[in-house]
Amino acid sequence: MKKQHIIPAAVLSVSTVLAACGNNEADQPAGAENEAGNEEKGELTIGVTPWTSTIPPTYVAKHIFEEMGYEVELTEADVSTIFIGLAGDDIDVYMDSWMPVHENYYEQYSEDVTNISTSYPEAASGLVVPDYVDDVESIADLKGREDEFGNELYGIEEGASVMDELRDLIEEYELDMELVASSEGGMLAQAQRNMSSGDPVLFYGWRPHSMFNEFDIELLDDTDEFFEEASVHVMAAKSMEESSPEAYEFLSNWSINIDDVEEMIVQIEEGEDEEDVAAQWVEENRDQVDEMMGN
């Protein structure tokens, strides 16, 4: 019983915010919007992984869902847990699924989870070295110079499919290197450690990521196209199509510019509030947002 009182109140406050924002829907009085059936659109839960690239799209989506009249909750979890949550309807949306890195999860749960849209294609990834390492421009240049890098290549967590790719790469290029598994944080800490003493270091990097703003590093040329071009996708629970059709429709139209994402990552790392950064993006890209909302 209590819940029924809360939801209209929340919708009301959302529509007040809408009115305050002065967007094109605000010409309807708040009450009329309620009568139009916008109330009780329900709750949406977005899964959030602890990666820098997840935050901007997640908060942009949250902002837009709230404009549409949903209540949005964010649940932080590990990517495997998020896929289990999507399959079990505990989580509705996940904004930062990397393909082909997350291919194995998607295959496992594709019965209940849908790859609803491509957030941005062409997210570059590959081997990264600091700028001060001379004469290493491509992966092939590493051959014969492995000892400069301590014969180690630093990767992310064991079990991620990119780790198998990196092992194949070492084999294919016949590099005398050992792949060291850890985690995003562990790998970056190791890279920072080597860079602080000016030593060469080789690790796995990808865009969008703030590492390219924080450190002077370059992505090595991948002449043999070893790394498949990654793309970032939005995953949604299949049940959403019925339970939250408007949000589902919006997600199926979703896309965002990779440069915008990287810019937002930097703003957030510089201490700006995630919600403000997202709101600002929505204001600046109102036309695109309207289009995605099907207006």
Partner: peptide, 21 residues
């Protein structure tokens, strides 16, 4: 400890967890 590159049993477990295996 396997999250900071320690090899061993922990790494098997971590890999299992992250693959839902």
């Amino acid at each position: 400890a396997s999250m900071i590159g320690a090899p061993g049993l922990g790494s098997i477990v971590l890999s299992g967890i992250s693959n839902v295996n």
